[in-house]
Computed example of a mutant assay.
Amino acid sequence: MATERGPTSLSALLERVRQAGSREASVSLGAILEAVGRRSFAPFLLLAGLVTLAPLVGDVPGVPTLMASLVLLASSQLLAGRRSIWLPHWLLRRRVSRPRFHRVLAWLERPAAWTDRLLHQRLTVLTRPPAHFAVAVICLVIALAMPPMEFIPFSANGAGLALTLFGLALLADDGLFALAGYLLTGGTLAIVVVSVMG
Rank of each mutant, 00 (worst) to 15 (best):
A2T: 12
R5W: 02
G6R: 06
G6C: 12
P7G: 11
L10P: 02
L10W: 15
A12I: 07
L14P: 03
L14W: 00
E15P: 04
R16D: 13
V17N: 03
A20C: 09
E24T: 10
S26Y: 09
L29M: 14
E34F: 04
V36Q: 11
G37C: 07
A42N: 09
P43M: 10
L45Q: 11
L46I: 00
L47S: 08
A48W: 02
L50E: 14
T52I: 04
L53H: 05
L53T: 10
A54G: 06
A54P: 00
V60Q: 13
P61K: 02
P61Y: 01
P64Q: 07
T65Y: 00
L66W: 01
L66C: 04
V71D: 11
L73G: 04
S76W: 03
S76F: 00
L78D: 08
A80I: 02
A80C: 07
W86I: 09
L87G: 08
L91E: 02
L92G: 08
R93P: 00
R94F: 03
R94E: 12
R98V: 01
F101M: 09
V104N: 09
L108K: 07
A112R: 04
A112K: 01
A112L: 00
A113D: 12
T115P: 05
R117F: 00
L119P: 05
L123D: 14
L123M: 14
L123V: 10
P129W: 06
A131W: 03
H132P: 02
A134C: 06
V135P: 02
V135I: 15
A136H: 04
A136S: 12
I138G: 00
L140T: 05
L140A: 11
L140C: 06
V141A: 13
V141K: 11
I142K: 00
A145D: 03
P147F: 06
P148K: 13
E150F: 01
F151L: 15
I152G: 10
S155L: 14
S155Y: 06
T164N: 06
L165G: 02
F166T: 09
L170N: 06
L170E: 07
L171G: 04
L171R: 11
A172H: 08
G175C: 08
G175H: 05
L176V: 11
L176I: 08
A178W: 00
T185M: 06
T188F: 03
A190I: 04
I191S: 04
V193W: 11
S195L: 07
S195G: 04
V196K: 15
G198P: 07
